[in-house]
Design a protein around this nucleic acid. Structure first.
Lengths: 206, 206
DNA sequence: AGGTGTATAGTCCATGTGGACTAATCGACT
DNA sequence: AGTCGATTAGTCCACATGGACTATACACCT
């Protein structure tokens, strides 16, 4: 029996996270994602967005809440996230935040990590830190072994880069963990009610 | 009029590059890619591999060179790369090595950069270096601006990471360019005939 | 008044992907 | 001798993606 969370694509999760900020129609989500440059992480195209929302509806994670029409333009169907949808966000983020395979999933989970409690996020990132260190060591060992066996460096350019990138991610993660664990680092819904997001939504809705 | 090179997927290009080492059947390619851990870059599944090879054949980039059968096992269809296929590898790598969008395409291009002349590879990587620096600056500016506008840091975790990663890639690229431009760095087909690859192929063919 | 361009909101379809499945062979255990 | 599991080589299909397309409305020229 496949869980609905297993079928969640990165864009599917971003949609659920957006709807947590308020009801929206798909086109507004497209605009908002582009405005926030979240299309750095996940490509956002019309076809995929509408298809994704339809899938989420079939899975019961979002629900239609109204259709309105502005002049003679196409109808706009507004959606709302369900309780199951909200739960799915937490479950998905918890699962992906610690994994080191699936880089894009991790970037989405990181962007939505604020949906978790601070302590939980830290725990998951520490697990990730360990897995990342293992992967880094394994790749470095393989690299050295290949060099030792006489494989010319020109064939190992990508391995070299991968190793450098893994090292950089480790360094960044250690730095982040230090910052995030410090009580001066704001966390949770106990801060100013995100005026910027409201302004963005207004701009996206216009 | 769409060029066949435009339709080349990362796996498609890896297949062409593999066939440059010698004729093979699809299953051997799967084994060889996994053995070399190239599935770090591109996911390798049965369905995708056979589909990809079929597409390459329709495009005239590879050609069937024989079907053999071992006992009562399924038939093995062996393929060979065509002249158009060899040309496509160069064209594709030249195009992708300089681009900063499309990260997976770049990793494949880097892994196959040895198909280019040293000077050409260096020129393309220098172009990439410039584009990467621009992207890094733009992202850092956006990050600072958001912070200045009062967006809490917990919402900017992914931007922070992206910025760190871009910086790390720039540093790595500068280092690589320095190493690669040095005459001590071996380049080109003028070295020992890759015994390791032959051994790997034997293992993959078994 | 007419033409050009772009934003809005969405549909549709050709490709590409990846997991499930088949069916035969081989090795290892018991 | 029998069975369990893994490997080999490949097919098949459900689903996801993204680009092309539609049709209306608004803005800017000239």
């Amino acid at each position: 029996m496949k869980d609905a969370v297993d079928r969640l694509t990165p864009l599917g999760l971003m949609v659920l996270a957006l709807l947590a900020e308020g009801d929206m129609h798909p086109y507004e989500m497209i605009r908002l994602l582009r405005l926030r440059r979240d299309d750095r992480i996940v490509p956002v195209t019309n076809g995929t967005m509408y298809h994704t929302v339809a899938r989420l509806e079939r899975a019961g994670l979002v629900a239609e809440v109204g259709v309105d029409r502005d002049g003679n333009r196409p109808e706009r169907t507004t959606y709302s996230v369900t309780d199951a949808g909200t739960a799915a966000v937490g479950e998905w983020v918890r699962r992906e935040l610690a994994r080191v395979d699936r880089p894009t999933e991790f970037r989405v989970a990181l962007a939505e990590a604020h949906n978790l409690e601070r302590g939980e996020a830290i725990d998951l990132l520490r697990i990730r830190r360990g897995a990342l260190a293992d992967a880094h060591r394994a790749l470095a060992d393989g690299h050295r072994l290949a060099q030792h066996k006489g494989v010319p460096a020109q064939y190992l350019l990508e391995v070299d880069r991968d190793e450098a990138m893994l090292g950089a991610e480790l360094a960044w993660l250690d730095d982040l963990l230090a910052r995030i664990a410090h009580p001066d680092f704001l966390w949770g819904p106990d801060h100013e009610p995100t005026e910027r997001y409201l302004a963005q939504r207004k701009a996206a809705r216009q």
